[in-house]
Design a protein around this nucleic acid. Structure first.
Length: 280
DNA sequence: CAATGAACCTGGTTGC
DNA sequence: TGCAACCAGGTTCATT
């Protein structure tokens, strides 16, 4: 599910709920998600106070006053949000971890497909943490621009859509926003990465920033099960130009004499959506 | 090092 | 109605 905007929205939504709060009780209801949970997860979280919540790539980083960081990845179907206190006794299906805070507010991590992950990492070891060490640029910072993108794309022969989804190049762009960004930049997802011009890289870097920022503003995209921390759904799915819109008119050329339709095909085992007329 | 495909899970939808 | 096949937002690992 969650790409950068959904993780960012979730993290921001958790701040008013969790920051400054002491975790009093933890229910760990499964042994593993994508991988085994840390052996002492429940013990490490119990009695800790959450001091800050940030995001790196598609990971949430919850800083604890114990000097440790609680790392949470939502995988494909994960959510983390406030629940009613009575659900503490009768958790919903796929509520894999529950927190009770000192103020009696409860929070659940729910993940039907169990592709999420959690870890505990010491604050001074976060930079060498194995899941962070090889990540590429954050797309919403200055350093990510046409120059950087061009340099990275130059040495890859894979299709540009696959390249911008590679977390070693740029983080946070997943299957939805890759299609959406390429559409905005009017670049075909099929183009070999190293054949994208420097000028096109400027456009593409800007398109990635734009689409991610707009999606964050909209509270993320809710397809099946994504909800924000307060339980509300995001609504950027209403603004998709191409994702999931096979057969529907392309927003840029639906008024043209020859109206064209959004097409779908497979790249790297994932669906790509595009307009053959608008993008080249 | 780069590219490719399978694997990890559950649930919803589609088609026979 | 039943059931198999296919699809879904991500990441890692083995193999070429």
């Amino acid at each position: 599910m969650p790409e950068l905007p959904e993780v960012e929205t979730t993290a921001r939504g958790l701040i008013p709920i969790l920051r400054g709060q002491k975790i009093t009780t933890v229910q760990v209801r499964v042994k593993k998600l994508r991988w085994d949970l840390p052996k002492n997860l429940g013990r490490d979280l119990t009695d800790a106070t959450v001091t800050a919540i940030t995001r790196r790539a598609k990971y949430m980083v919850l800083r604890l006053d114990t000097g440790q960081n609680w790392i949470v990845h939502l995988g494909m179907s994960g959510r983390m949000h406030r629940i009613n206190a009575d659900q503490w006794q009768t958790p919903l299906k796929h509520d894999h971890l529950l927190l009770r805070l000192a103020n009696d507010i409860c929070v659940a991590f729910n993940d039907p497909r169990k592709f999420g992950m959690m870890d505990i990492v010491a604050a001074d070891k976060i930079d060498i943490y194995r899941h962070f060490a090889h990540l590429g640029a954050e797309p919403l910072v200055r350093g990510f621009d046409g120059e950087y993108l061009f340099e990275q794309l130059q040495r890859r022969k894979i299709a540009v859509k696959l390249a911008i989804m590679d977390q070693k190049l740029v983080v946070g762009v997943g299957n939805i926003y890759a299609s959406e960004a390429l559409y905005r930049a009017r670049i075909s997802p099929k183009r070999p990465a190293h054949k994208i011009s420097r000028a096109e890289c400027d456009k593409l870097a800007q398109a990635i920033k734009d689409v991610l920022r707009l999606a964050i503003k909209a509270g993320g995209s809710s397809l099946r099960d994504y909800v924000q921390s307060d339980g509300k759904i995001g609504h950027f799915q209403d603004d998709f130009a191409v994702y999931g819109r096979t057969g529907q008119p392309c927003p840029a050329c639906h008024k043209a004499k020859k109206p064209c339709k959004i097409e779908k095909f497979t790249q790297g085992g994932r669906s790509t959506f595009w307009c053959n007329n608008t993008q080249s």
